[in-house]
Simulated scan of single mutants.
Amino acid sequence: MTDADLEDFIKCYNPENRFDRKETYSEDNPEGRFRKFAVEDILERDKTSLDIFWIKDKSLADLDNLPSPNVLADDIIENLQSALESFENLKEQLK
């Protein structure tokens, strides 16, 4: 992940003036990635969960075009190896 990956979020989040934040989500734009929720709506959720998502990954909905199990397994292994290397580097830095 790089700073460029977060540019859209930072622009919408507007850290310089939080009162001037603009949603990109709307009924007309359900793919908008920045959406606000009322406190009341969050409190009504089971265990006041902040695990909120509204954008569906279209690749997961298209079950006919999923990668093969071997490709998925290779991706999982690669991600786990990368995570392990990161933890090993962190451990070395803590010494």
Rank of each mutant, 00 (worst) to 15 (best):
K36I: 05
L6R: 13
D41C: 02
D28C: 05
Y25T: 00
R35M: 05
S49P: 12
F9C: 13
K47R: 15
N17F: 09
D28V: 05
F9H: 11
R18N: 07
E23Q: 11
E23A: 06
F53Y: 14
S59A: 14
E16D: 14
P30Q: 02
E16A: 13
D28T: 11
D57T: 05
T24C: 01
L6N: 14
K58G: 05
K47T: 12
Y13L: 13
D41K: 09
K58D: 09
T48L: 12
I42A: 09
N29A: 09
Y25S: 01
Y13V: 04
D8N: 12
Y13T: 09
T48V: 15
I52F: 08
Y13K: 08
I42E: 05
E31H: 08
R33Q: 10
G32L: 00
D41Y: 07
F37T: 04
K56V: 11
G32H: 02
R21D: 04
D28P: 01
E23I: 01
E16R: 11
S26A: 04
S59D: 15
E27C: 03
R35Y: 01
P30L: 00
F37K: 06
D20P: 01
R33D: 06
K56F: 07
I52C: 08
K11H: 12
K58C: 00
I10N: 12
E7Y: 10
F53N: 13
W54G: 00
Y25P: 00
R33C: 06
T24N: 03
R21W: 03
N17V: 05
G32Q: 00
K58F: 01
D5I: 05
D46E: 14
P15Q: 02
